[in-house]
Amino acid sequence: MNQFNLSKLLFLMMMITGTMITFMSSSWPATWIGLEINLLSFIPIIYHKSNILTYEAAMKYFLIQTLASSLFLISSILMTLINYSLIYFLISITMIIKLGGAPFHMWFPSVMEGLSWNNCLLLMTLQKMAPLLILSYIPNNNCINMTIMMSIIVGTIGGMNQTSTRKIMAYSSINHLGWMFMTIKMSQNLWKLYFSIYTILITSIILMMKNLSMNHINQMSLHPYSPMIKYYLMMNLLSLGGLPPFLGFLPKWITIEMAMNQSLIIMICVMVWLSLITLYYYIQLSISSFMLNSSHLKWYMFTNMPSYNFMMITTTITSLLMLPIYSIMAF
């Protein structure tokens, strides 16, 4: 049985503090300090001495983030000596490395594979807030144009042949990073809306996968739990994929409309087309439980079924209630 760990709670508070320092800082060195506090606090959280995979994941994460932080610090020091456009380009590269966006995405799926579900949730949500905010501050960010399509393509193709749910969620996160980069390019407030809805949906999905101990896509057919929880999972996955009329379609709808107004027609059409492909591996996570008979093993008969999670139910109901909102906005 897992015991309450006070030290990890302390490191979690320090990690949140580092993120807040980055938010409130008015200079690049102070921003770097906040990022370093965040990094050094996250390493002890993800490390667990009884699991060698967490050690490997912690080392990979530390090396990649240290490389990015070093490049960011050098860029801050050379800001008064080199052209600002070059400095902003280097800072954008460092933030994309920290986020795990393409073409610097190679470390992200392997680190996700070695983490627990709680730490995966932190890596996909809280750890992305500060780098995304820094990217939104950079004016005329030409570097972000390159990584928009690359992140969406890598996230789409990379998740198609995966059987590990952690890697599928990792490539899904890379795909959504491409959409977030697109929103940063167009509006300061739109990426915050997109990130907020993404955080709500991914939190609900991660909590469900944790309760079901769902590490591979074929495990959904092995659980004797109520079919309702499987419907919840399917609805939230479809919402995460941006399928109307679910909640996840709202930020993508606004992004598409703003991109059309800015004459980015070809780019947004390709993004929408690739989003249809991502729905393929989202459906893979839940379709086996509906198309195949669940295997009810005898030793499951007297086990306690997990209670429904409040976040899961709330997110699903909210997604379903978005249909009348879409109707009102359309008219």
Score class of each variant (00 low, 15 high):
215 N>Q: 14
272 V>Q: 10
305 M>D: 10
143 C>W: 13
156 T>L: 03
134 I>F: 13
9 L>C: 13
198 Y>L: 01
247 L>H: 06
77 I>L: 12
33 I>V: 12
205 I>H: 11
85 S>D: 07
283 I>Y: 13
152 I>T: 07
99 L>M: 15
54 T>I: 01
202 I>F: 02
104 F>Q: 11
3 Q>S: 15
161 N>A: 10
204 S>A: 15
219 Q>E: 15
132 L>G: 10
315 T>Y: 05
38 N>M: 14
28 W>S: 05
169 M>H: 07
182 M>G: 13
220 M>S: 15
104 F>K: 12
31 T>F: 08
44 P>V: 00
280 Y>C: 10
166 R>Y: 12
138 I>L: 08
48 H>Q: 06
271 M>E: 06
197 I>A: 05
252 K>I: 09
258 M>Q: 09
296 H>G: 05
153 I>F: 14
94 T>F: 04
110 S>T: 14
27 S>E: 08
114 G>Y: 08
241 G>M: 02
171 Y>E: 06
81 L>W: 08
183 T>D: 02
121 L>D: 02
72 F>Q: 02
213 S>R: 15
295 S>H: 11
133 L>I: 06
325 I>T: 11
314 T>G: 13
195 F>P: 06
280 Y>I: 04
273 W>T: 11
86 L>H: 09
136 S>A: 14
109 P>R: 04
316 T>W: 07
51 N>Y: 09
3 Q>W: 14
